[in-house]
Nucleic acid binder design. Structure first.
Lengths: 117, 117
DNA sequence: CGGTATCCTCTCTGATACTG
DNA sequence: CAGTATCAGAGAGGATACCG
């Protein structure tokens, strides 16, 4: 491992893993949606209203991708077929450390770039 | 904070910070380039050869973006004007924890999705 | 060696309308 | 309420050629 390496030597597999991670939570709306569900919004319209600028199209697509990645569940009320609930999976919570670290880094980075420390 | 929240309550500012982070290291080539420099490659052609499929155009653009974000430095040898060295900044190394966490998560996630644990 | 310029394609995203 | 369908624009990325 070279001295100038960023902490860990990365294998090809690591790079793929990194890109997967970025893909899963990347794009314009995934994070705001996660944020919205975090804040207690469960229904499609609730989530939509809580995210300024999002369209039904992008919300629909993003929710499905998050569902495909097992980060959220989609549950239709059997009694009220037009009532759907989106919730985090237990699995999604393992994701907390990463979120925290990304927030920390993003804030630090912004100060660095803007303030030119 | 709601129970179903992913570990931390996120503010609007946090969401922006997260998106910044994804932006800085996002795209198709940033991570492979970081990997390449990690492995000791310093010159444009060296890096290019080490990343299958990348074009000079994308390498050039990505390097400049990483430089704009202070993750790497670009140094021209005053004696040999056509010799350029790309290296990590000290600042970039603070980024190690995040990389590690993203690799860990990405690998775990892949197993989860493929293996359907 | 270390790039830039041009053109082209393809995906992501937005706008709008419509449906069960 | 919870979406899908369709069309259009913007931007990322690829192919190729060329330059100091």
């Amino acid at each position: 491992m070279k001295d100038q390496c960023i902490k860990v030597q990365q294998t090809e597999e690591d790079i793929k893993a990194l890109q997967d991670t970025i893909y899963v939570i990347g794009g314009k709306w995934k994070l705001p949606i996660i944020h919205s569900i975090c804040n207690g919004n469960k229904h499609f319209k609730e989530i939509e209203r809580s995210i300024p600028g999002i369209t039904t199209r992008m919300l629909s697509r993003s929710l499905r991708e998050l569902e495909d990645n097992k980060l959220i569940t989609r549950t239709v009320d059997p009694n009220v077929p037009t009532l759907v609930e989106y919730e985090f999976t237990e699995y999604a919570k393992e994701y907390g450390v990463l979120i925290t670290e990304m927030i920390r880094w993003g804030k630090h980075h912004k100060k660095m770039i803007i303030g030119q420390l």
